[in-house]
Design a binder for these strands. Sequence first.
DNA 1: TTACAAACTAACTAGATGGTTAGTTATATC
DNA 2: GATATAACTAACCATCTAGTTAGTTTGTAA
Lengths: 220, 220
Amino acid sequence: MGKVTSKKKERAASTSPRRTRDTEATKAQILNAAEEEFARHGLSGTRTEAIAAKTGVTKAMIFYHFGNKEKLYRAVLKRPCSDVIQAFETLDLEQQTAEVALSRLIRAAIEYCVAYPHRGKVLFHEANQNQGRYFQKEGGWQPAIDYISNLLERGVAEGSFRPLDPFITTAHIMGICSFYFDARENLKYAAPEKDLLSPDMVQAHIDGAIALVIAGVKNH
Amino acid sequence: MGKVTSKKKERAASTSPRRTRDTEATKAQILNAAEEEFARHGLSGTRTEAIAAKTGVTKAMIFYHFGNKEKLYRAVLKRPCSDVIQAFETLDLEQQTAEVALSRLIRAAIEYCVAYPHRGKVLFHEANQNQGRYFQKEGGWQPAIDYISNLLERGVAEGSFRPLDPFITTAHIMGICSFYFDARENLKYAAPEKDLLSPDMVQAHIDGAIALVIAGVKNH
DNA sequence: TTACAAACTAACTAGATGGTTAGTTATATC
DNA sequence: GATATAACTAACCATCTAGTTAGTTTGTAA
């Protein structure tokens, strides 16, 4: 990070309550609180005061550490896509058949949605309110889309997948993985007895998504 | 509608500019403008002044005709689901095999997204900001989900579809249809040469969605 | 232990925002 | 064509919000 710190503060930034002053911990806490608030209300709808309240720090700290609301928003947008790509890259997909690789990728994508439940929503707001301008500046979805498209093209080239439009199919796969979470609060009323975030239901979502997509793209 | 009007005003409410005073036309214009604004910013993020500006009528008219922002929001939420069901019901799906019925339903769902590009977004905000409370009061997605689930179950019972979880698969199908539009502004950067709303691209979306889902659920 | 810079707070400001109100104009009906 | 009333406007108010500022506390290192 360039900065040399003599004593490394090991306090978990996101969970434990702040006790003393600690730049990195405070910034991380503001970022996490901001991610949640931006997920609910988007850039313009989010109140800096609400972020501050979640952080346990005064509103002025947001401006002290991040300059203004927009810069904080951009900092929040930096994290999603690079984290997804990182998750994909630990899977060694090149070593697998296209079919196995696609199954693993879908599982990883859904598990990512579970691990970071706010990020899909932040990006929705971003598309909606700001036409994706800020997200585009931070790299956008390009790497993730390329990653999935390339995998699909490989499957088609190898003959294990039927001919398909890689871009459209990538969009369909992203929709399959994320809609379940993004629309969760509307879906829950249609299945009141189920907890959509329980491990069992998430597993059913993963299994169903893999079954649908693999059967859907396979060369039968 | 209960009210007797001697002369029916035939001016198209949504498009042509207002010229004289006309309750129904004004209310419809406010509703359409509100749908757009709520789609971008959700309930809390939407500024009544912005709705007024789009309508060409003063802000006070919103309160005159709808009482307050929340009541206007609820009026906007009344329209989406009933319109989808109506679209489904004109398709005579019971007369078709499950496979043909599902194909037609997907086409109709996507065409609905094209016809009313804001409604999916309004519902996303609703899920996100208000945990779907208001939408639930207006009926929610229940009828649409039931409609699709029943169709899937019929296909499974007939043996033309493989065994599958109807609820999960319904969510996947909804995601396939709507993500393309809801994330459009983020997707467009990944395919800058394409106009995602052009008839050709929408047709490719429809074809791809049908191909993926039908192959994905079929008993091979 | 003292001195200093970074981290932090409380109180504030200018401008926006939901909602109101008092008054104005169009329109249907007699 | 007079008139009652529904449709509408302009100006207003109380409250809220992004961002600022002046001053206080804390860790650190000489």
